[in-house]
Design a protein around this nucleic acid. Structure first.
Lengths: 144, 144
DNA sequence: ACACATTAGTTCGTCTACTAATAGTTAAGC
DNA sequence: GCTTAACTATTAGTAGACGAACTAATGTGT
């Protein structure tokens, strides 16, 4: 029970750290005048990188559930940032694209996101990153 | 831009890892027949460790907002696991306690939580834990 | 060709996160 | 002492997470 792996700390630390990052990014997006949540940004980012992606593919890539993706895309479509185009050859599917307005938003918001990432990592080093990836991947894999 | 700290990876890895842990724990709680969410467990755990704690103190400790704590405590009270007692000397406050049923639930659910923590950490070592804590704390502090 | 399973997306219900606004209470300053 | 500020908890509204159940379309086996 007193062994380090039994402490609540690691669960708790991951949780509070991701909250901190999300809050910082959300605050910057708000102050930049963007009507965007962090999760909405994440989907826009993926669509920008893989235009014509389907909702299910998006769900897999972002580790969100299909219903969650549906709802976020609904919102982005309402704002005119994303477009659902019927997929050729499969009438169940949609191909997702950024609208012109969506592409503009991406371009304008990107520097804010990049700055938050840079700020969060601070002066941690390459070897820290290797430790970080190894430990996180290990925890993740332990649940597979 | 190609520098490691600019990758989306670290944000993404933290996010997916905490999701994985939460899902694993929730699944175990469900399979164990507990009518408890992960967040509800977190509050029960804190009340167990600090009986008579107030809602605001609980919010600070768990990094949840006061309205969130209010709602979760409402649910736990409805289930008969937690009790709100008026605080002596300050009629705005409540002192929170586990009911007998709440204490039973804690005792029964604890092994499940401990097992998930153990499983997640796997065979990572003490030095890994030190790296982990240092890196997480660093990211966290970079936003203060 | 037809029953059957699978896939893509949606709807619904419950829960948590966060903001803003509010009631009621207590503390502080002049 | 009295006004004002600060604090504790709550309510309301929007957004997101997730599971279950559903519709419509597609694929497979015989």
């Amino acid at each position: 029970m007193t062994h380090y792996s039994d402490q609540r700390a690691y669960f708790f630390k991951i949780d509070t750290t991701i909250k901190k990052i999300r809050n910082a990014l959300q605050k910057q997006l708000n102050e930049g005048g963007f009507d965007l949540t962090v999760d909405q940004w994440v989907l826009i980012d993926h669509i920008k990188r893989a235009p014509s992606i389907s909702q299910n593919e998006l769900a897999e890539l972002t580790f969100k559930d299909p219903p969650t993706v549906t709802r976020i895309i609904d919102l982005l479509e309402k704002k005119g940032l994303v477009e659902r185009a019927p997929a050729a050859g499969d009438r169940r599917k949609f191909n997702l694209f950024l609208t012109e307005k969506g592409a503009d938003t991406y371009r304008e918001a990107f520097p804010i996101v990049a700055e938050i990432r840079r700020k969060g990592w601070g002066d941690l080093e390459e070897t820290d990153y290797q430790h970080f990836v190894r430990i996180m991947d290990s925890i993740y894999q332990n649940f597979n």
